[in-house]
Nucleic acid binder design. Structure first.
Lengths: 234, 234
DNA sequence: GGACGCATGTGCACGATTTCACAAAGCAGG
DNA sequence: CCTGCTTTGTGAAATCGTGCACATGCGTCC
């Protein structure tokens, strides 16, 4: 066994929540809170306390019974587990509206994912500077990925160009892709793809609105009014 | 029983996939394909054929055994189920980089979610025109929502202003919220919130990359190489 | 130094989702 | 019209995720 013993696999559902906990814990830490209970964290995250405890237990036993969790230590552990103890440079493919907005958005640079490159197929965009990064030709993608040791790529192209972008990213050595184009990408197994699709999100909301109006017509009761919950991601 | 009998509840997991199917089916339809099997659709969507059949069965029995599904009819049924048979105007709160990018993004107007209003708290932004919509003061939010019959709101403010934005949207009568701010919103029950958080997505990718490198150190096998799958949303 | 109270960590039951496997049903061809 | 091939629709099993309930362990106070 190596010094860093191989960790047990963490369920996807838990992995998806860890960033939320991290976010909240970082805020608490900044606010001077140095200890938090599973219930406190659960309230802030809008989930069940038992779920918080189970989620955190996958990281190890870092709480103290009768007391709670040390906020800073938890931040440290979650960051470590998520691989946030160092930066992950990313490359953006597509310097259109979306690509530019993403590059300019603080969410990348500020949170450990510096934009190490942005490429486009349109020569008219070459060398224009977007949020500190110069737009380079698509052909230089492989070179940029290799030179900067990039493993995460972001696709911000129109849908028709997205599969080609994915192919090029994979060929260049990228192993994780964040896809903003509204198409299902085909990639070799082992490559992790996450998709963010505005239309899908809106259509899910539309579904719930539509249901609501059907229910109204049938004279059914509205959901209970007063009570407040956090983040019904229903 | 009213003419539109109340539909059985469709599982959340299925609702989240229907927009993907719809997208693919619309493409197929445009490409002249008029019939598709569950397996064909499953391949294109990157999922299991049985899942497709079960998902579609929640809409009713619209397939023909031994043949498959009529593409156009399926498009019609999914659209109907998702409430896409009419437009859902949306209002955007926050006219900063993100709000402007969203308003300008075709994804809204082109897909049945016209931007019926965009508001901001900064007087410097009032009356500037973003993608055909004039930026109005935050105070006019309720009036805009009422006048245009809006039920979906989009939060594109900085995190510190997001909860206030949510409160105002709810008070104005909005019942579904798409939140781009990296905080957990607190809303009354009955209000549906969906969150899109770039940092969360990147951190999930980071987790997988981190795991990959730990596995490498331990001399473990990489995932199988050649084979191609669609959209590993792992 | 012992008793008490509190919050964690986890076994277990439950619910939701995925997948399998096959009967039912339509179509084509003889 | 009957047989065979194909693909749907769906019970039932398997898997995954959630939440309850409580034993365990830690800190505190007397």
């Amino acid at each position: 066994m190596p010094p860093h013993r191989t960790r047990r696999r963490i369920p996807d559902a838990t992995v998806a929540r860890l960033p939320i906990y991290l976010q909240i814990l970082a805020e608490q830490s900044a606010g001077g809170v140095d200890n938090i209970s599973s219930e406190g964290l659960a309230d802030l995250a809008g989930v069940n306390a038992a779920k918080v405890r189970k989620d955190l237990s996958y990281l190890g036993s870092y709480g103290t019974r009768g007391v709670g969790y040390d906020v800073d230590h938890l931040v440290y552990q979650i960051r470590r587990e998520l691989g946030l103890d160092h930066d992950w440079p990313v490359v953006i493919v597509g310097a259109g509206n979306l690509g530019q907005a993403l590059a300019g958005y603080g969410g990348f640079n500020d949170r450990g994912f510096p934009v190490a490159g942005i490429v486009d197929i349109d020569p008219g965009k070459f060398d224009s500077v977007v949020a500190g990064a110069r737009v380079r030709p698509l052909e230089e993608l492989a070179q940029i990925v290799a030179a900067k040791g990039i493993s995460i790529g972001v696709i911000a192209t129109p849908p028709t160009a997205a599969q080609d972008a994915a192919d090029r990213l994979v060929k260049a050595g990228v192993t994780s892709i964040l896809n903003f184009a509204p198409i299902v990408l085909s990639v070799p197994v082992g490559i992790v793809v996450r998709k963010v699709d505005l239309a899908v999100e809106l259509q899910i909301l539309s579904y719930h609105e539509q249901r609501r109006s059907v229910a109204d017509q049938n004279g059914q009761l509205h959901a209970v009014p007063a009570e407040r919950g956090r983040g019904a991601t229903a």
